[in-house]
Design a protein around this nucleic acid. Sequence first.
DNA 1: GTGAAAGCGCTAACAA
DNA 2: TTGTTAGCGCTTTCAC
Lengths: 335, 335
Amino acid sequence: MATIKDVAKLAGVSVATVSRVINNTSRVTPETREAVTKAQDELNYHPAVSQKFSSRQDSEIVGMTIADHSDPYFGQMVKVVDQSATKEGMSLIVNAGYHDAGRERQCIEELIQKRCRIIIAHTVLLRDELLTRYMANQKSMILINRKLPGFEDRCVYLDDEGGAYLAVKHLIQNGHSKIAYIRSSHQIADAEMRFRGYVRALEEAGIMFNPALVVSADPTPQGGEQGAEALLNLSQQFTAIACYNDMQAAGAMAILSDNDIRIPEHVSIIGFDNTAISRYLHPRLTTIMNPVSAMAMSAFAIGLAIIREQDTKVQSRVFTPTLIKRFSVRDLRAF
Amino acid sequence: MATIKDVAKLAGVSVATVSRVINNTSRVTPETREAVTKAQDELNYHPAVSQKFSSRQDSEIVGMTIADHSDPYFGQMVKVVDQSATKEGMSLIVNAGYHDAGRERQCIEELIQKRCRIIIAHTVLLRDELLTRYMANQKSMILINRKLPGFEDRCVYLDDEGGAYLAVKHLIQNGHSKIAYIRSSHQIADAEMRFRGYVRALEEAGIMFNPALVVSADPTPQGGEQGAEALLNLSQQFTAIACYNDMQAAGAMAILSDNDIRIPEHVSIIGFDNTAISRYLHPRLTTIMNPVSAMAMSAFAIGLAIIREQDTKVQSRVFTPTLIKRFSVRDLRAF
DNA sequence: GTGAAAGCGCTAACAA
DNA sequence: TTGTTAGCGCTTTCAC
């Protein structure tokens, strides 16, 4: 691989001059520029970015940690941050932890070692203590989907409890009272919060919480299938199922349909997240809007404000989920 | 941010020693190691990776370009490469071009500038000429989903034409002859190849190709909706629709269903790619398996073999799609 | 086992 | 406008 020296030699100029034409950081005669450019592509020269910033302080790269590249939920987040970063002339690196605490930590460590200017971390398995240390040292590190005591101004998250509450309340308002819940088997905060929202909605309506109506499964379509099967095997009565997320809802719907249980005629179902898929299920799935893109944008904006030393108060931190009515919930009161 | 110097000073040793304990590249007394480690986390020191490799030749990073982070199709690819890379102790950087030729080029350029050891490029808009130049200079650059003349040994791709042929042939074998096709509006090779497969299957069966039965749309659910609407408005007769991909099929199914057209009773439908979503549509979608993961693994393996100077002949390059029968195609001959 | 010092490829200050 | 040179933070010889 050719270096700046090679280019300089071939063009008959100094490395400084080459550097100048590359970054056009100062005036250069058309002839020298020409000579340099020519040498440059004759040698197929590509400046090594890592060196570019080694002499200076900064790096112009934003780092991000997510759980899983193949999960469209994160895909959406990454896309938004990527495009925002590009707009600011920064590049993006994203590391995935795949639901493993050790890897999650390594992801963050790697971003620090790569000297990212901004770090947006979706980390769910790291202990508060460790995370606190990272946050304290990385001034432009933002947490997404997590509320860390002492760093509220750098946390962006959804009101998960409120979202689930909204979902279940919607079912109740439609006359449902025997409401099953498929929760996420992952030991993470939002799983717990959503579950609490379910319980609160029930309590508020004076409906007895029945533990037998709650099953735990992976937050995936497969999980939804298993959850629905478990629910059917219980032979408990229920007229509706609330799910941890749309993926589970998709799986559950498939199983119900396989068993000739019609949605929403026989059983109503409600999801969470408003994943792209939810609009294309049959029937189109009623769900809770999770403004992932807006949250990701906000996280990036906060990070940017920090490194630009601008006011950071403008950005939203906690996001409110909203109900998206489609066709998977039946109004029992009408009959 | 603390540097290796700071650590050395605090630990009362030389930078060389610090470097040694960090990489444990040579024996060090337990006491010095202890002192260094202590200084290290007292200062919250994280070695700057970019510098680590600046003195040497290599970088231990693999780069990848894709079209869109939010597309699960690419998410799957990225995940596989990520995990393979991690297994080899390498890290991954991925850049997305978002269906823009300029950005696509920039993505590759960036990976080169970051000195990736292996580059896996999914690039569809770059001209052969330009790509040839990159391939010639980057010996461990692999193309995915593209066949570039002269570099066949570094191209991994699917037989798209064969896949679409398979899909349409399946419809024909089930007694269909009025078969509509929703093609991708993107000007890319695989869109063209899949379309050709459709035409060839028709021709081979002696069915007249009817241009009026072909509509063009985005390779997304929205595109599928538009495509299906267009098809319905044409008021042409058809008993089946073959789609460019599963996303389009999902959108098309929703529209048909909205119009009380039953699948597969009234209209059969077949997708392409076997995206996760396809199993959860109603009815479960018959589609063509696109072994993205296997292809991505193979691409990485080829890259790895190249930098390891190992035999590269072992890996598969062209992948064969297979039919996945589910419930969206009706057998007309049975009636 | 450890340190001094050269070198990696680049930028930026300072001279010319 | 251009060249010289110090320096960025790290690794790696080569002595000791």
